[in-house]
Amino acid sequence: MAGIYIHIPFCKKACHYCNFHFSTTRHNAGEMVNCLLAEMTIQQTYLAGQSIETIYFGGGTPSILPAVDIQRLLTEARRLFNVIPVPEITLEANPDDLTMEKLAEFSAAGINRLSIGVQSFSEEDLRWMNRAHNADQAVACIMNAQQSGIRNISIDLIYGGPTLTDEAWKENVERAIALGIPHLSCYALTVEPGTALDHFIEKKKIPPIDADKAARHFAILMDMVQAAGYEHYEISNFALPGYHSRHNSSYWKGTPYLGLGPSAHSFNGKSRQWNVANNALYMQSIRQAQVPFEVELLTPEMMLNELIMISLRTAAGCDLRVVNERFGEEKSRQLLAAGEQYVQQGWMIHEGSHLKLTREGKFFADGIAADLFV
């Protein structure tokens, strides 16, 4: 199985924390869609005929596009690729785009899963983030989506921000649970270079991110969603049974995928490539029937380190049998030996053939994984 990711590089506003590739200029959105269709044709052999189980529209803000453009892209994907009869098709969306009319159009186009960028149910948070929607729209869009018949819904929430108190964070999580949202993606506010947030901190307009607050919010989150029956299946992702993201789970399992659009990444099992993060240059190249990308051949060490990093973030953990099969018994023994200090510390457990992070270890996931790199 494989997946397709389609990057829609347009947003209404620039959120203060965001470093994804996008443009607030949308006059050429129609031409961009045509270029995405053309790139599909150029790249139709990249996945070597593998079955396509998931299609994911990310961005940017894909819900900005008219549903007819989403339908055109899906129709072409089905024509050129071996898409299974019932794939998971996810659309990232902003609350202010999700009217009942547009939801019906997206559903008719083939969208069967929504990933909604709520970020917070607090008006103060949303203003500070420079989001395009308000708190009322954050709630209304979820209820609209549920009424439209799209039940497979995920929302994004951000914690650790300067305007978010512990009590307000609890209220955000409580609201999400009460609304019956089956999937939550929750992220600590992170300062990315070159963002408005980075500039504000550098100019001392706001204080640096409070790591202790973020840790408290993560602990609150884990307790609340566990009590509500959610499965903590990846560090930042929580789902009711049966609602794990098939697309993202494929990433974490190392499944090949094709990325289309400016800044999109692709992976075929042996190499990784990424398109230029510039709308004008991307479209100029596609018009000449060339995909403007850089490619990196992955060494065995790079692939093993990526396996360690990704798998330790999941509930399943790192399977030493997979390490043994793909990289040799010696690497498996080295990894187990390196992880022993964290087992003794109570941050990892060795369960069967798997190394897994404990609740305490999840607070230090990236650091532990980096320490285990070969």
Results as ranks from 00 to 15, higher is better:
Met1Asn: 09
Ile6Val: 03
Tyr17Trp: 07
His21Pro: 00
His21Met: 09
Thr25Cys: 05
Arg26Val: 12
Ala29His: 09
Met32Ala: 05
Val33Cys: 06
Asn34Cys: 11
Asn34Leu: 12
Glu39Asn: 04
Ile42Trp: 09
Thr45Leu: 14
Thr45Ala: 14
Thr45Gly: 10
Tyr56Val: 11
Ile64His: 05
Leu65Gly: 04
Leu73Trp: 08
Arg79Thr: 13
Asn82Ile: 14
Thr90Ala: 05
Leu91Lys: 03
Asp96Arg: 13
Met100Ile: 07
Leu103Glu: 02
Ser107Gln: 15
Ala109Asn: 10
Gly110Val: 09
Ile111Ser: 03
Ile111Ala: 12
Leu114Thr: 05
Ser120Pro: 07
Asp125Met: 15
Arg127Lys: 04
Arg127Met: 03
Ala132Val: 15
His133Gly: 12
Ala135Met: 03
Val139Pro: 00
Met143Arg: 12
Gln146Asp: 09
Ser148Val: 09
Gly149Gln: 10
Arg151Leu: 15
Gly160Ala: 04
Leu164Lys: 08
Ala168His: 15
Ile177Asn: 02
Pro182Cys: 14
Leu184Glu: 02
Cys186Glu: 00
Ala188Arg: 05
Val191Leu: 08
Pro193Arg: 15
Glu202Pro: 00
Lys203Tyr: 01
Ile206Thr: 14
Pro208Leu: 15
Pro208Phe: 13
Lys213His: 15
Lys213Met: 14
Ala214Met: 14
Ala215Gln: 11
Ala219Arg: 08
Ile220Thr: 09
Ile220Glu: 09
Ile220Ser: 14
Met222Leu: 13
His232Lys: 07
Phe238Asp: 07
His244Gln: 08
Arg246Tyr: 13
His247Gly: 01
Gly254Pro: 11
Thr255Ala: 04
Pro256Val: 10
Ser263Met: 10
His265Asp: 00
Gly269Met: 11
Lys270His: 14
Val276Ala: 07
Ala277Ser: 13
Ala280Met: 08
Tyr282Leu: 05
Tyr282Lys: 04
Val291Pro: 00
Leu298His: 06
Asn305Thr: 08
Glu306Tyr: 07
Ile308Tyr: 03
Ser311Ile: 04
Ser311Cys: 13
Leu312Lys: 00
Arg321Ser: 14
Val322Ala: 01
Lys331Phe: 11
Met348Asn: 01
Leu357Ile: 11
Ala369Trp: 01
Phe373Ala: 01
Val374His: 11
